[in-house]
Every structure is written in structure tokens, then in C-alpha cells.
């Protein structure tokens, strides 16, 4: 998860509340007792994060499976 995924569609989205574009920022994700830092697009003001579909159903799902099979 440390490798930065492809976020080309992140620039299409902005925070609805703060009306500002998202910026890459390190955020923690956790599963089955393990925590990992990952760089994700995030609103610099309120902190809302964007996880694109391809990341959720691709790399994240793959890591979930690996952790479950451990």
C-alpha cells in the first residue's frame, strides 16, 4: 500500500463542503489488526478522503484477501 496508486480521476472531484480541490496526503488504513499508511487524495481543510473505485475493487480488495488468507 505504500506505492502511490493512480489517481488521474481525483482532479475531477472537490470537497463539497469546503469547495477546494483535493491534495495527496498520507492517511492510515486498517484491516484485521494491521495498519498501513497510504497516500490518498484528501481535502486539505476538512480531511475528507477520496478512494477511487479502481483502488477499492482492485488493490485494496487484493490486500484484504491476502490479509484474510494469512
Amino acid at each position: 500500500m505504500s506505492r502511490q496508486p493512480d489517481f488521474e480521476d481525483a482532479s475531477d472531484w472537490k470537497c463539497a463542503k469546503c469547495a477546494v480541490p483535493l491534495e495527496m496526503h498520507e492517511v492510515e488504513v486498517a484491516y484485521m489488526g494491521s495498519k498501513y499508511p497510504v497516500a490518498l487524495p484528501r481535502c486539505p481543510r476538512c480531511g475528507i478522503v477520496f478512494i477511487p473505485e479502481q483502488l477499492a475493487v482492485g488493490k485494496m480488495a487484493e490486500i484484504e484477501r491476502l490479509l484474510e488468507d494469512k
Binding site: V27, E28, V29, A30, Y31, K35, R45, C46, G47, I48, V49, I51, E53, A56, V57, M60, A61, I63, E64
Partner: peptide, 16 residues
Amino acid sequence: HNAYSHRMELLEELKP
């Protein structure tokens, strides 16, 4: 228009 999910928890700290 779309729906997806993940089990991994996003430890997001939202400010008001």
C-alpha cells in the same frame, strides 16, 4: 450512478 465498497477501514480524521 455507481456503488463500490471495501472492508479496509479508512482512519479519516474529519474536521467540522
